[in-house]
Design a protein around this nucleic acid. Sequence first.
DNA 1: AAATATACGGAAAGGTGTTCCGGAAAACAA
DNA 2: TTGTTTTCCGGAACACCTTTCCGTATATTT
Lengths: 189, 189
Amino acid sequence: MTTTGPSRRQRSDAQQNAIAVVKAAKEVFARGGVDAPAKEITDLAGVGVGTMYRHFPRRSDLVAAVMANEIDACADAAQALATAAKPGEALTQWAELYFDLVATKRGLAAALTSDDPGLQEIGPSVRDRLEPALQSLLDAARRTGAIHSELEAKGVITALALLCHPVPDEGVDFNRRLIAVFLNGLLVP
Amino acid sequence: MTTTGPSRRQRSDAQQNAIAVVKAAKEVFARGGVDAPAKEITDLAGVGVGTMYRHFPRRSDLVAAVMANEIDACADAAQALATAAKPGEALTQWAELYFDLVATKRGLAAALTSDDPGLQEIGPSVRDRLEPALQSLLDAARRTGAIHSELEAKGVITALALLCHPVPDEGVDFNRRLIAVFLNGLLVP
DNA sequence: AAATATACGGAAAGGTGTTCCGGAAAACAA
DNA sequence: TTGTTTTCCGGAACACCTTTCCGTATATTT
């Protein structure tokens, strides 16, 4: 049996490479979706495929890394909105933020709702971060009677992610309208 | 240049094989989604892969063949509902039919909204069949003031298809609730 | 400078979708 | 029935990706 081996701090080139891969992935994902060939990412990052898989064994790890910053910002925004605006409006505004996060990046909506084994992790991990924030918005809205439905945060966040899927021959405004109808159904007029 | 060659009627074994492939695909799609390996379908059908690709060059051709009957039935049902029920209810009832068609078949919702080149055809082809029927329901509902939104048939049918996507760890009732909220937003209370 | 853990690159292995073609079989003609 | 023509079949071959693996290179530590 081995105890935790002689630990040494991570090599600096490894750190640089990880950053380069995330940056390249961000660009490639935006263009070609999260199913883009690995080689496209590694070529752009200037590393070998092995390097990518060492840092991000599953595709979901890479997707999560790409989104981490924006997810955090979105969660924080929810907290801010919870106290700043009227509950009903806060919800609408937050939905718009979430929409900007998901719908404007080709393939990201698909990643969030995929049942592909390599991506299954990411939906839940994103929700773990965002659900509590959204739930507090929902609770506040429900207390003031602004909410009609029984739906919990998971339902809302799932519906939004689904309605963000790119639709052939349509721009993001199409999705925006779908979401508007959904929110309309959620909030009491 | 060649004129249309000496035409002869299709061989009977070819017809049988095509039918066998569709039948097998129906079963495999229901289990494993529309991205199931081709070999799984051909093995079940008892034919070689070449046979399948000859009859159905793109995956979407096969999916369309599998669904053709049910799509027709769903479109006809819309026509019937248009005259039978109150416009608002007719819409809700038709949505339930569409839901049964799409949500209960794993992966079919994904096929309808995929941007995979091999599947792009099927969303439109289904919509071409279903949109006119739904549009007449929408128009009727709008005439009686039961409809709130500006959304056209394409928007409604797209939203329904999206909200039918299987959600990990949740059953179809989860999707049903999402759709209920959407319809609630579509119809004036 | 030497020693050692860490990380790299890309070749190899494994899998799946799609094409292709020699041979088999059905349809037709006589 | 027998021969000829056309269609169609099966699965090997090809192409493209993902993922693993390991000999080599390099950063870090002593």
